[in-house]
Write a protein that binds this DNA or RNA. Structure first.
Length: 576
RNA sequence: GCAUCGAUGGUCUAGAGGUAUGACUUAGGCCUUCCAAGCCUAUAGCCCGGGUUCGAUUCCCGGUCGAUGCACCA
């Protein structure tokens, strides 16, 4: 590998030129925070998404759902995004600088600034100094800058909607339907791959911070008492990886390498479920082509965690340009979201868990004599009935409070029955384990890590060393010459590979070396060349992108061999 | 959002107050028996808006995008 002055610039230039990533609506001037995926980029992204599906949908059995990107206001009121997904800001009247109002206040020695209302904060700020120009602010208005895109649903702006800032809420609000779909049993999961939107104040860093981005999220609903019993934990129990705990971060120490079993037993990761998906994430990211040495798992610091999460780990990928980039978030969201939506919507979001054996529980029932009670208390009878159910009667009767008034109900107006009832189970609110992947950041990391320059025949060769599983074009087919039927044979081979579902690209333009270089630059892992020997013995050369080595294989074996090479079940160097 | 710098074919680049240089790429052709060879031909460009000027891609102002610093990053 030769020295790379700036991989980011090289890779983004290539990405633009060869159709991976483009600035959006470029002819009108691009818009920061939005990108277009070009033909190769869209294909690569889809392949990454499909690897993600292999892991979560096929292997874990968590079906994918698809919710709208716009949801009504109530959804985000419940989730806390309307109130909380905003920064309190103010503008310095002297230097016009926009400031985080709570930061200014804390800088001025005011406590609990982050929990104050706008008006309180505004008053408190009057004596604080601007963080930029250090003038005393005086009268300033504090306003919330909500990071959600707001819109209206239907004509006349009657109904407020927001573009979703995460796909997760769709899975939460569909909880009751999902629970029925999974036949009322825990654990189960739902996943979603789709666009989310955040109106970032100042997006920079190309594909890393977008205003519209693709998330792949899984919401796994588990019994709170079963979080240490993942049914397939054995799969990753001995899977080892470096973990950077918050304690180590606070002490400036390096990550420790632990197996998932050790991590859970030592309390480093909160539970088996979280550890399982930490390990699964590590495996998946390596499959798409992330080098393990450029991958780490970092635990959120206690003050960094969202208020609902008990433990949270980020998979971070090291970028030449941006340093460690948070790419996947793995959180134990507890029952926060389901409780919030149950409360806001009035729909129960619980699972009925049957006990192994019904429990015999003594229960006291109070049965009022309504015919007397109704006549005697008339319009208060109904309220009295309700209150009696929870009353504690004595042999002299019971006292109930209705509208602030204590009413004595004599013992002959109700009957007390002590009985033993069977309790067959209980309603519990599941906890949610959430692995949340930033697909665009994964795409960028794949691009950056695939980019390489080497020297072939004294000339610089630019090559994208994609894993065959994510490479947009999977195989190229060339006739050595465009004559003597070599091109016809090459076209037939192309068709036979396409029938196998492979993206095979035929190219007969220019010298053979140029065609290899073209494919190297877009990361096509394999190239087939039809030459004059082909006409003698029905074999072709199969060339490996990374080693530039070639082997001869029979035409009839091509679909099977290429198929196996592309899905990773065979590797090139083992072929004959 | 503020400050500084930048923007010329697809890419990299030269350049001047009078419509633009070269290379690579791409396309067509010739040639060519495995790694960007050679020859011929062709396509293609001054970020957007306003101002100054007879004339602006060039100077000035504003915007957009990008880079850097500040701020921000559920």
């Amino acid at each position: 590998m030769i020295f790379m002055s700036d991989v980011f610039e090289n890779v983004m230039e290539l990405a633009k030129r060869r159709g991976f990533v483009w600035p959006t609506s470029e002819c009108y001037g691009a818009v920061a925070g939005f990108i277009d995926y070009g033909p190769l980029g869209a294909m690569m992204k889809r392949r990454i998404e499909n690897i993600w599906r292999d892991f979560y949908v096929i292997r874990e059995g968590y079906y994918e759902i698809e919710c709208p990107t716009i949801a009504q206001e109530a959804v985000f009121v419940a989730s806390g995004h309307v109130a909380g997904f905003a920064d309190k800001m103010c503008q310095c009247p002297h230097c016009n600088e926009f400031l985080r109002a709570d930061h200014v206040a804390e800088g001025g020695g005011i406590e609990n600034a982050s929990t104050m209302k706008n008006e309180e904060l505004s008053a408190a700020l009057a004596t604080c100094k601007c963080l930029a120009c250090e003038e005393v602010l005086g009268t300033v208005e504090v306003f919330g800058f909500n990071l959600m895109f707001k819109t209206s649903i239907g004509p006349g702006s009657q109904r407020v909607g927001y573009l979703r800032p995460e796909t997760a809420q769709g899975m939460f609000v569909d909880f009751a339907r999902l629970l029925r779909f999974y036949r009322d049993k825990l654990p189960f999961g739902a996943v979603q791959i789709g666009k989310s939107y955040r109106n970032e104040i100042s997006p920079r860093q190309g594909m890393i911070r977008l205003r519209e981005f693709t998330q792949a999220e899984a919401e796994i609903f588990v019994h709170p008492a079963e979080k240490n019993r993942h049914p397939f934990f054995g799969r990753y129990a001995s899977y080892r990886m470096p973990l950077l705990t918050y304690v180590q971060q606070q002490n400036g120490q390096d990550a420790v390498t632990l197996s998932m079993r050790e991590a859970v037993d030592q309390g480093v990761i909160a539970n088996e479920y979280l550890a399982y998906y930490v390990a699964l994430t590590h495996e998946m990211l390596t499959v798409i082509g992330i080098k393990p040495e450029r991958l780490r798992f970092r635990q959120h610091l206690p003050d960094e965690r969202a208020h609902y999460a008990t433990d949270c780990w980020d998979a971070e990928i090291h970028s030449e340009r941006f340093g460690w980039v948070e790419t996947v978030g793995l959180a134990d969201r507890t029952d926060y979201d389901l409780r919030a939506h149950a409360k806001e919507s009035g729909t129960p979001m619980t699972v009925f868990i049957q006990y192994d054996e019904p429990r015999k529980v003594p229960r006291r029932r109070i049965i009022p004599n309504m015919s007397v009670l109704g006549k005697q208390y008339r319009n208060k009878a109904k309220a009295i009935f309700t209150e009696l159910e929870s009353a504690i009667p004595t042999k002299d009767g019971a006292d109930v409070v209705v509208d602030g008034e204590t009413i004595h109900i004599p013992p002959d107006l109700f009957e007390v029955r002590d009985e033993i009832v069977d309790i067959r189970g209980e309603d519990i609110v599941p906890h949610v384990i959430e692995p949340s992947y930033g697909i665009d950041r994964m795409c960028y990391a794949v691009l950056e890590q695939a980019y390489d320059e080497d020297v072939a025949d004294g000339e610089k060769r630019v090559v994208m060393r994609f894993s065959p599983q994510v490479a947009p074009v999977q195989v190229a087919v060339f006739p050595l010459m465009t004559r003597d039927d070599l091109d016809t044979i090459a076209r037939e081979i192309t068709t036979s590979l396409q029938k196998k579902g492979l993206l095979a690209e035929y190219d007969d333009s220019g010298a053979i070396g140029r065609r290899y270089r073209r494919q190297d630059e877009i990361g096509t892992p394999f190239a087939i060349t039809v030459d004059y020997d082909t006409k003698e013995n029905n074999t072709v050369t199969l060339r490996d992108r990374d080693s530039m080595k070639q082997v001869r294989v029979a035409i009839k074996d091509l679909p099977e061999i290429i198929g196996a090479l592309v899905d990773g079940t065979r590797v090139f160097l083992e072929i004959k």
